[in-house]
Design a protein around this nucleic acid. Sequence first.
DNA 1: TGACAGGTACATG
DNA 2: CATGTACCTGTC
Length: 269
Amino acid sequence: MVNISIDNFDIAQIADSGQCFRMNPHKTKPNTYSLIAFGIYIEVEQKPVSNTVTFHGVTEKDFETIWTDYFDLQTNYSDIIHSVDSSDRFLMAATNFGRGIRILHQDLWETIISFMISQNNNIPRIKRSIEILCETCGERRENFNGESYYCFPTPERLTDINNLAPARLGYRDEYVASFARSVASGDIVLSDIRTKEQLLKIRGIGEKVASCIFLFGLHNLSGFPIDVWMKRVIKEYYNGSFPVDRYSEHAGVIQQYIFNYVIHKEGEK
DNA sequence: TGACAGGTACATG
DNA sequence: CATGTACCTGTC
């Protein structure tokens, strides 16, 4: 277990910001989120409005080598927040609203499959599909509570379209199986993927999904995904074009503040 | 009942 | 290059 004080970190906001699909409130433990990444199950406990965070199931060593990078703890989010144009009232509000968000550095393979599934889809169903995929095709393990959990499936397990049927991916199943076959056969080497152009060549990946993978899987903070929500905001508040250049090297963080803000504000209406 | 959802591929102007 | 349409599935 690791106990640490972190600024600009809110596990509830991160879990609910739409960038990841396997981080959820724990069923019984209050102020606790469970998540599975890199085949590891951990729990993150944080009381509301506190900057003290407890990582359960995490050793000091794993915290340094895995989770610091995963939660992007080496990036100074305060600097990013202070770079926001103070005359931009909308962005100031969005940033303040989501100031505990961080851009996770997720596993590339899992990110590609997850965002392929996300197209023309909504979050609850994306989560359901991914969970079924893990339960039916992923390796089963036991967590530190003695409960079982499932790892994200390997490429080999997703090459057969019959294995995908329970997840009800619809027409997306061909994209997933096809990409899984490319990786399993070695035609595509994941660690060779570094650019958006490479992602766009993959069948089932267009501009929006490539931007998401670029940002969340390759952790390139200049990625700026524009989906229907962002289009709406840009049209309504920015006269059709957002000043991406002003935030060039961390535009993706700015995008996440805006996106998070609108999906939660819309829900209130 | 049918339109729609955090898009993409493919076919046309 | 801009626009239009089909597409699995679940939901309202």
